[in-house]
Design a protein around this nucleic acid. Structure first.
Lengths: 339, 339
DNA sequence: TTGTACGCGTTATCAG
DNA sequence: CTGATAACGCGTACAA
């Protein structure tokens, strides 16, 4: 049919076929440039025939902007991260940006950032809570906007859009107190994260307001496996806790599994469980998991807005946005007594 | 400390500082090029001082290769897709490639492929099972390697690395028959996918070999919500099925939830459930889900090998790789009688 | 409105 | 082994 096009058509080819200059072709494919309708028509016609589309790489070199946003993501086995990545990608794409994905490997973190930057991404978004601060900082030094979707300990000089971890922990503690629990345990996440620190603080303050302290605590490292061990520890206490708050849903599912499967406990009658993130799997378990978490769509929307704005304006001020969280009561907690 | 570098250093800057030519700088940063140790040392020194790293965009333009691989992914809420994306990214990065992620939106599928191609990716990998065939075909027309990690109906002209769906369905059917089930139901996935077609065929053939037919069937569309409805339908039959095979894990979790939560059934005593994919959540439920699925690492490895090889050699022959599946018996099926 | 000429930052080629 | 010079494909003053 068409001739075997070993090499793609360039703007020069289109120009020749349309009988115009290369500039005319360029302008036709540039938003808001002066081209007569007649010229534009001829160019588009020729472009269609040659199956031409502008080379974004060359365009980037000339415009000194790539229209690419770098996303640093990891732990995609955690549904909340996967969901965030997908939503972010959709939103960015809808705004005309492309995405360069970077999945850092714990071994060679440092090699990757330079590589990401070498692709001249216009901005960087990161969703990893345990990043070394010097990585995003390296990106910042190049003058690119960097937005973190997790607070990173000691990285206050970076833009961030995070959720109200303190409020979330507080809400969980309050719910458990108000539904009559007295021995409330906590399965924490990695202690080097602001997420864990703030959720824990919120929990403690809520319990204190009800005259309680955390009954017991174990570190689940944000992983399912870690939380299985942690749950076994906590449930070996005597008397057992009557409620567990977990710093994420993955760990709460582990607590559910262990308490029912290994200890034969009834949930929520013997043990109430509250997770964090309000991720999809919290709806998939039985009983379905009570969980507190942010409006993900809102977080993504704020982040993308911020990034796009900073790219456009070059605004270099540091901003911190915090989105509120919402408690979603499902089946792993008792119903609140009607006031 | 360092002077505010509004604009990044270029190779010319390094060359000037090192007292050499731009070519020398280029060669220093090019694998296996002739540079004297002395020159290299001077260049690296200057580069370090200026915090220089080569501009990959400019390099791409000149080399006519970007080192970028496009990945088309979607449905990241499905853990198996998220896991695959992460593993693929890691593997590709380890091989020196960067990743351009594309999350197609059902509305404007067609706009995205050209955009992906405009970034001159060296190859395209797709994990979406319901892609329109003309999209990957468009990529193929540009001469780039395209590898699909799902068989797409009617796309035999595209390279593929897929798992043995027929064998998986067959294994599930066989297991259920051998553990004494007689009323085996099937919750299918989207009927426009090869995945669903082959898993179903495998199931039917396995049952037939035991003198059975599928007791009942409902379409769960590969989604959790769809499967909840499907499960309700199936369990409303009288007599009820005594086993359900689901075309993915998400749907199996829904079956588990509904059968226990809404119908008060015991699993696996009243009802056996088998999922597909052997994804992470299959280990998180209680009882843990019996599931059949491929070795994901193997699939990723084969895919990346194929892509890298085809990029390097320009080999345009079409290949189909099929990786075997493995049945992982957990707690939602009875133990096999000891032979 | 159109075309010319130059620049974007790098690599490949080819003399030295 | 090194350095000048020409691509790579496109955007954009500038002059027409």
């Amino acid at each position: 049919m068409t001739k075997k096009q070993q090499t793609a058509a360039r703007s020069a080819d289109v120009a020749r076929l349309a009988g115009v200059s290369r500039s005319a072709v360029s302008r036709t494919f540039t938003e808001g440039a002066y081209v007569s309708d007649e010229t534009r028509r001829k160019v588009l016609e020729a472009a269609r025939m040659l199956n031409y589309s502008p080379n974004a790489i060359a365009r980037s070199l000339s415009k000194r902007a790539t229209g690419l946003v770098g996303i640093i993501a990891a732990d995609l086995y955690n549904p909340v991260h996967a969901q965030m990545l997908e939503a972010m990608s959709r939103s960015l794409q809808a705004r005309g940006f492309g995405i360069v994905l970077l999945v850092p490997d714990t071994s060679n973190f440092d090699e990757f950032i330079p590589r990401l930057l070498s692709y001249q991404v216009d901005a960087v978004i990161t969703t990893v809570a345990t990043l070394d601060t010097h990585l995003p900082l390296a990106a910042v030094q190049t003058g690119r906007p960097v937005v973190m979707m997790q607070q990173i300990l000691g990285a206050n000089v970076l833009n961030s859009v995070s959720s109200d971890d303190y409020g979330g922990g507080h809400a969980a503690g309050t719910l458990l107190c108000e539904t009559g629990h007295r021995r409330i345990a906590y399965i924490s996440g990695r202690s080097d994260t602001a997420n864990n620190r703030d959720r824990e603080r919120g929990l403690r303050d809520a319990l204190a307001a009800h005259g309680l302290a955390v009954y017991a605590q174990a570190n689940g490292l944000f992983t399912h496996e870690g939380a299985m061990t942690a749950t076994r520890q906590l449930l070996s206490l005597s008397p057992r806790p009557d409620a567990i708050f977990c710093a994420n849903d993955l760990m709460a599912l582990a607590a559910l599994q262990v308490s029912r499967g290994e200890f034969g406990m009834a949930v929520p009658d013997d043990l109430a469980i509250v997770g964090y993130d309000n991720s999809a799997p919290s709806m998939w378990s039985w009983p379905a998991l009570t969980s507190v978490g942010p409006d993900m769509a809102e977080m993504v929307s704020l982040t993308v807005d911020m990034v796009v704005r900073k790219i456009a304006t070059g605004d270099a001020t540091v901003e911190h946005q915090v989105v509120p969280v919402r408690m979603v009561e499902r089946q792993t907690t008792r119903e609140r007594p009607t006031a």
